[in-house]
Simulated scan of single mutants.
Amino acid sequence: MNLSESFWENKYKTNKIGWDLGEVSPPLKTYFNQLTNKELKILIPGGGNSYEAEYLFNLGFKNVYVVDLAKSALTNIKERIPNFPDEQLILGNFFDLENEFDLIIEQTFFCAINPELRKKYASKMNDLLKSKGKLVGLLFDAKLNEDHPPFGGNKEEYISYFKEYFSIETMEKCYNSYHNRDEMELFVKFLKK
Rank of each mutant, 00 (worst) to 15 (best):
L139V: 06
D86E: 14
K71F: 11
F101P: 00
P115M: 09
N93P: 05
G47P: 13
E39W: 01
I42S: 05
L103W: 01
A53E: 14
L128T: 11
P27S: 12
D127H: 10
F110L: 05
K134N: 12
V24N: 04
F109Y: 13
E106I: 02
P27V: 13
N33G: 11
N93V: 00
I44N: 12
E106M: 03
N63D: 14
I159H: 11
L59H: 03
K163S: 15
H148M: 13
A53T: 13
F94T: 03
Q107I: 05
I159T: 14
K134M: 07
Q107E: 14
P150M: 04
F110V: 02
Y51W: 15
L40C: 01
L89Y: 10
L139M: 10
G48H: 07
D127G: 03
Y31E: 13
N83W: 03
L144S: 05
Y55V: 10
D127T: 11
I105P: 01
A112W: 06
Y65K: 02
A53M: 12
T108F: 13
R80T: 03
E146R: 11
P27M: 13
E98K: 15
K119T: 08
T75N: 12
F94S: 05
V64Q: 03
P115W: 10
L43Y: 11
S25Y: 09
F57C: 02
I105C: 01
E157R: 11
F32Y: 15
Y161M: 09
K124R: 04
N126W: 09
L28T: 06
E54R: 13
I104P: 02
D96E: 15
N58G: 00
E54P: 10
L97I: 06
L97S: 09
I81G: 01
K41N: 08
N58I: 00
I44W: 07
N154L: 06
F151N: 02
L128V: 09
G47V: 03
N33H: 13
V136L: 01
K130A: 09
E116F: 06
L138M: 09
G48K: 06
F32G: 11
L43Q: 12
V136F: 03
Y161R: 12
Y161K: 12
E87M: 10
P85E: 04
A70K: 08
Y65L: 00
I81L: 12
E54G: 14
Y158F: 15
V136Q: 00
A53C: 13
N37V: 01
E52C: 11
K155D: 10
I104A: 00
E116G: 08
D96C: 04
K71L: 14
F151G: 00
I77R: 04
N37D: 15
Y31Q: 09
G133R: 04
L28P: 02
C111W: 03
I105Q: 00
L103R: 01
L139T: 01
R118A: 02
S131W: 01
A112P: 07
Q88D: 10
N76M: 11
M125Q: 08
E116Q: 14
